[in-house]
Write a protein that binds this DNA or RNA. Structure first.
Lengths: 334, 334
DNA sequence: CTGAAAGCGCTAACAC
DNA sequence: GTGTTAGCGCTTTCAG
C-alpha cells in the first residue's frame, strides 16, 4: 500500500486539509506551502486513492458500456469512439459483453447489477422492448439502436426504417427487382431488425414489388458466417435474387464471400448493400455499398445524455429520443 | 442514494454486523434471522456500495486493459476474449486506448496513473523497451506482444521471430523469390515490428535471397490504408515483388485491395501473407493466408499472471516470459 | 450467534 | 490560509 494524505501532511509539516487543497485545487494555498507539499508528494510518490474519493463523492468516474460483442467491427468501432469521447469528459469506460444473452442484459438493468458505474450505455439485443421500457436502472441509462417506447431511458439511434428504405430503394433505382433481405430475426423481437425489415418492405411496396417470403432470410447472429449461410440458402432457393440488402456489413461481407465462392459477379449478377459502414467494407473486393450511421455522433450524444443526468441528478427531463444522421455510401457492390 | 447496510439493519431489527454476514456469507447466521434480514434487503432494494467495499478491501475488482486502438480487429478480438476471461474470474475490465501515443502509455505505467485497477494489461506500442523495463507500476502488470528484457513485468506473446520466419519461408517454399515486407517501423523502435523483420530476414538468408531495401516498406500505423499505400509504393518501385509478407492482416488486406485495384491477380501475380488471423481475413476475396496467434491463450495466460500476483502480493516470482503458440494458416492468397 | 465500534483514505463544513 | 474533525458505507476485530 502506498502513502496516504496523512503521510504527505506529516512530511510537509501541514495538515491533511492543506494537502487535499493542493491536490484537488479546491481552495487556494500559499505559494511556499504549496511548494513544500508538492515536494513531499513527489518524494513519497503519493497518488490519491480513487476508492476513497468515490466513496466520499458518491461517484466513481466510470461509466459502463454493454454491447453484445466486442469483436464485431461495428461495436468495436463504436466502443473506440465512446472510450475516446468518455476520456474527453474525464470518464473511463468499463466494458461488458452480453453475447446477446437476455440474462446478461437483464442483470445489467437490475439496480445494483453493476453498481460501480455513474452511468450505463447499453446496446440491447435479446431483451424485449417491453422489458427494456420497464427497467429501473440504478444509474442514468442510454439505450443504443433500439426502439424504446415510453421507456425510462434516453435513446440514441439512426432512423432505421428510413435508412433501410433508402438502401432498398437504391437497389430498385438500379433496376433490380428481385431483392432479398438478409438479417431478419423473428425469434428475437429484436427492435433493430424489425425496423430494418419494415423499411425494406416499405420500399418494395412503393415500387410495387411483391414480398417474397423466401427472400427474407433470418439469421441467428450478425456475423459473416451467418451472411454466408443465408446467401447459400438464397442461391439454392427457387428464385434467385438479383440484389441483397444485408442488415449489417458483416452479413454483407459473408454474402459477398459466398457469391465469389460460387463464381457470381458482384454487382453484375448480384448487387449487395450492407449497413454500418465498417472499415472492412471500404477495403473489401469490391468495396461495399452501405448505410453509414454517424458513429461519432452516436458516441457524443450518448455521453451528452449521460452527462446531463449524472451532473444534474434532479434533472427530470423526460427521456429523449435522439436520431442520429446516416447516409448511403455507394461503392462498388451496387 | 439508495439504502445502506444500516437501514437494512434497522428494518430487520438487527445490527449491521449481522446484515453484513448475511450479504457476504462471512459468518453463519441463524436461519430465522437470515430470513428477516433477507426480507428487509428485498424490501429496501439494498445493494452493497462497491466503492466502500473497495476502500475497505483495498481492491476494486477491476483490471485495466490498455491497447492502441479498439477499432483494430486484432485488438478488439483480443479485448473480447480478455473481457470474457476476466468475467470468469469475477473481474471487470476498464479499457483505455493509447492511440500509439507514448505519453498515454507512459501515464499508465506511472504509479497512480490509472490507480483504480487491481492489475493492468498493456499492449505497448510507442514506448521504448528500455522505458518499459524501467517501469514501476503500482499494480501487477502484464505486457503483451513485446520483447521486454529484464523487465519488472510478466510478458505474454508469440514467438514473433519464428512466426515471421515461417510466414516468409512459406512464400519461399511456393517458389517466390522477390518477397517484400510491409510493416517495418524503424521510427518506433517497436519491439514487435523489429522481431518480425528479424524473422523475415532470417528466412531470406537461409534461402540465400538478397535483402532488397526497397522491399522493406515502413508504415506509420497498421491499418488497411497503410498497407494499401505501401503496396502502391512497392508496385511503383523499380523491381516488383512476387510476394508480400505483411506484418498484420489489416496491412495485408490493404495490400490486397491495392493489388485488385491495379488488376493484379492474387496469388498468381503476387502472393500475400498476413499476421493475426482476424476474422475479415477468413472472408476476404480471396481468403487470406496468415499467421494465427492463439488469442484465447493470450487472454487466459495474461489473466493467470495477474491473478498470481494480485492474490499473492508477497509473490516475488521473477517476471515470466510466456510464449504462446501460433500456426500458419494457408488460405488462398498464397 | 450477535452487538458495538474502529477505521479504510478522502473531502468539506466548521473553526480560527 | 490553514487546522480539526465528522462522516461516506463497508468489514472486522473484540466482547459478550
Amino acid at each position: 500500500m502506498s502513502s496516504r494524505l496523512k503521510d504527505v501532511a506529516a512530511r510537509a509539516g501541514v495538515s491533511v486539509r492543506t494537502v487535499s487543497n493542493v491536490v484537488s485545487g479546491a481552495a487556494p494555498v500559499a505559494v511556499e506551502t504549496r511548494r513544500r507539499v508538492q515536494e513531499a508528494i513527489d518524494e513519497l510518490g503519493y497518488h490519491p486513492n480513487l476508492a476513497a474519493r468515490s466513496l466520499r463523492a458518491g461517484r466513481t468516474g466510470i461509466i459502463g458500456l454493454a454491447i453484445p460483442e466486442l469483436h464485431s467491427p461495428y461495436f468495436s468501432e463504436l466502443a473506440g469512439l465512446l472510450v475516446d469521447e468518455a476520456r474527453r469528459r474525464s470518464w473511463t469506460v468499463l466494458i461488458d459483453q452480453t453475447h446477446g444473452d437476455a440474462e446478461a442484459e437483464r442483470r445489467l438493468l437490475t439496480p445494483g447489477g453493476g453498481r460501480v458505474v455513474d452511468g450505463l450505455i447499453i446496446s440491447p439485443w435479446a431483451l424485449d422492448p417491453a422489458e427494456l421500457a420497464a427497467a429501473q436502472p440504478s444509474a442514468p441509462l442510454v439505450l443504443l439502436g433500439e426502439r424504446h417506447p415510453n421507456g425510462a431511458a434516453d435513446r440514441v439511434a439512426v432512423d432505421n426504417v428510413t435508412a433501410a428504405d433508402e438502401a432498398t430503394s437504391h437497389l430498385i433505382g438500379l433496376g433490380r427487382r428481385r431483392i432479398a433481405a438478409i438479417g431478419t430475426q423473428p425469434h428475437l423481437r429484436n427492435g433493430t431488425a424489425q425496423l430494418r425489415t419494415e423499411g425494406y418492405l416499405r420500399a418494395l411496396d412503393r415500387a410495387g414489388l411483391l414480398h417474397d417470403q423466401d427472400f427474407q432470410r433470418s439469421v441467428r447472429a450478425l456475423h459473416r458466417a451467418d451472411g454466408a449461410r443465408a446467401m447459400d440458402e438464397l442461391l439454392d432457393g427457387p428464385a434467385s435474387p438479383d440484389a441483397v440488402f444485408a442488415f449489417s456489413d458483416e452479413l454483407a461481407l459473408g454474402a459477398l464471400h459466398t457469391a465469389h465462392q460460387r463464381g457470381l459477379r458482384v454487382p453484375e449478377d448480384i448487387a449487395i448493400v450492407g449497413f454500418d459502414d465498417i472499415e472492412d467494407g471500404r477495403y473489401s473486393n469490391p468495396p461495399l455499398t452501405t448505410v453509414s450511421p454517424d458513429k461519432q455522433q452516436i458516441a457524443e450524444r450518448s455521453l451528452q445524455c449521460l452527462a446531463d443526468r449524472i451532473y444534474s441528478p434532479a434533472n427530470t427531463t423526460p427521456p429523449q429520443e435522439i436520431t442520429v444522421p446516416h447516409r448511403l455510401v455507394a461503392r462498388s457492390t451496387t
